[in-house]
Write a protein that binds this DNA or RNA. Structure first.
Lengths: 342, 342
DNA sequence: TTGTACGCGTTATCAT
DNA sequence: ATGATAACGCGTACAA
């Protein structure tokens, strides 16, 4: 009925709160005897320390905040899962990972990060695909709360990134090698409207695309590029329509916006009677589970997502433990998975 | 550097902590004048109340715990997303949703639920596909922390469920109507080994399958059923192999274990040169994004996942607000989506 | 509005 | 070496 507190345990065990606390926190200066006695009472009375009181008392929170735009995006869900998996393996922060989402709103993000920082809610913050303002980074640095960025880099914070320039390059170059000349690009937004966050990976993939074209002596043509803020199936259908309208002779699409969007491209192509890859070659990005199951199976750039989650967790732990004197920047290489669509 | 506390604000604004607290909590009995003054200081000094202190002081936590086995499962990620979406819309518990995962381990689950309960960490707990022990339910009831179950029901807690019996029935009956007689079932585990949790939906889909057979005068044959604990692509391949070994004349498969598994079935069928649906009709479960993109497009039972998340959130809020005198049990009807595979 | 006890652990200091 | 005492962390809420 009433909540069991440390005081109750102390009384029942005939010691003081301090002793109970020490038992819980494995302080060495207690006898086996008293410890066993106290532990027994704890079990008996179903005592669980109040985490709020605990946090309040010691400033540390035993929490890592994991901030992303939306939970449902496969990329994010997978990273989060790997992150947590690693936590279980290492036995640290096991129930101490707090996912937050910003719903893509810059304002929510800023507010949230302030809140986490000044509310002392987390020992470290992991940001997936979200770019904090420099002001925030500075404030975190001052209070010594480590930031770990995924898909971003900023001085003053650690980062885990996939080499997106290379990803864009690999995909485009492969298409060129297959003899394609008119390669459309469906991408994320590279010039975000106010209030929407920039996703640098889109810029980088664009750059890779350009570099590959240049390497092969083909001039970059802006009319071959479309950008969308959402990464949905419908964007793929729409994107292909737009690209074909600009040039019906389009012979390939690199869908840097991801495999879901690529699926939309595929559907639209098929609806128009275009054969993939014969009439239109298609390369996606991400390599989701379903990508290999499509007909034709999707050629795509694979992101080592699990590894990103694992590295993010390990980096966060190292930072929390004070083992990182400088920014740690991990770059993971993507891989082109060649299947049937190109 | 040092943390800004309510005390600092009070001093700077020339009032007491109590006043500041009232301002923050929108208590009406304070003058506009003092309120504005206090708010100004709060802004200036970047004051954010310490959530731990706050929770400690008032027993309420402003948190809803959202407990599932794994984050990455598409079903779970989608529910979680809808859940959070609704929170944003309603402006309640906006950053107060704490996802936890149990990694499928019963022990972890029990421990976690105890911790949440006795640690007073949440105002309500939502459990996705996870069944708490009756003991836990009783303990939650006693402490008046509402439980909301998804895909489960237990007296003493609220529930949101999809009518799985009906889902199983719809799929099987449709296959029977198409003239199929030898219908295999690939399902989740209905008799879990110790330490692994029961997923009742598997039982229910099995029941729907049986009922449909009986309705059409076909005897249930246990050798047509295989069960797996994981819902992976590989299970689909394996499942079909096993079923065909038992009866090579199999003419249909209802893959109640979900569309990912169904994709495995499809791949295996195609690898064996079986035409779908001519030689083998296939019905899945879930209706994922990719399901409509396969060749042949997958006929499947659609789960109204978004709606489940929304209902779960609303139910949690109602329960927290004390508006539910009795258990609320919502049942959502699934829908058979007919495409090409059957 | 203010003063202040309270919620619950942690930890520095002190006694044995 | 063990354990007790007491102050502390930060808001909330009730009596005055």
């Amino acid at each position: 009925m009433k909540n069991v507190t440390i005081q109750d345990i102390a009384e029942r065990a005939g010691v003081t709160k301090a002793t109970v606390s020490m038992v819980i926190n494995q302080d060495h200066r207690i006898t086996e005897k008293t410890r066993d006695k106290v532990l027994k009472v704890i079990k008996e009375m179903h005592y669980y320390p109040n985490p709020s009181a605990r946090k309040l008392a010691r400033g540390k929170s035993d929490v890592i905040a994991f901030v992303s735009a939306r939970f449902a995006a496969p990329f994010i869900a997978t990273v989060m899962d790997a992150f947590e998996q690693r936590a279980f393996q290492m036995g640290r922060y096991v129930h101490g990972i707090h996912p937050y989402s910003t719903q893509h709103q810059t304002e929510v993000k800023e507010e949230l990060l302030q809140q986490i920082l000044y509310g002392r809610t987390a020992d470290a913050v992991v940001l997936v695909t979200i770019r904090p303002s420099e002001k925030i980074v500075a404030e975190y640095a001052e209070r010594k709360i480590p930031l770990v960025l995924l898909e971003n880099t900023l001085p003053g914070s650690h980062s885990i990134r996939v080499d997106n320039v290379r990803g864009g390059f690999l995909a485009t170059e492969y298409l060129l090698r297959q003899g394609r000349k008119r390669i459309g690009l469906i991408n994320g937004i590279t010039q975000p409207p106010p209030g929407v966050d920039l996703v640098p990976s889109a810029m980088e993939r664009l750059q890779g695309y350009r570099e590959a074209l240049e390497t092969h002596g083909i001039k970059f043509d802006e009319s071959r590029v479309v950008s969308y803020g959402d990464y949905l199936f419908e964007q793929g259908r729409l994107g292909l329509r737009v690209l074909l309208e600009k040039d019906p002779r389009l012979d390939a699409v690199f869908c840097a916006a991801g495999d879901i969007v690529a699926m939309g491209v595929l559907a639209e192509a098929q609806a128009r009677g275009l054969k993939v890859p014969e009439d239109l070659a298609l390369v996606g990005y991400d390599d989701m589970l379903a990508s290999s199951l499509l007909k034709p199976a999707l050629t795509t750039v694979r992101q080592p997502i699990l590894q990103m989650g694992v590295s993010a967790f390990e980096t966060a732990i190292e930072a929390i433990d004070g083992k990182l004197k400088e920014d740690k920047n991990i770059i993971i290489q993507p891989e082109l998975i060649i299947r049937e669509s190109a």
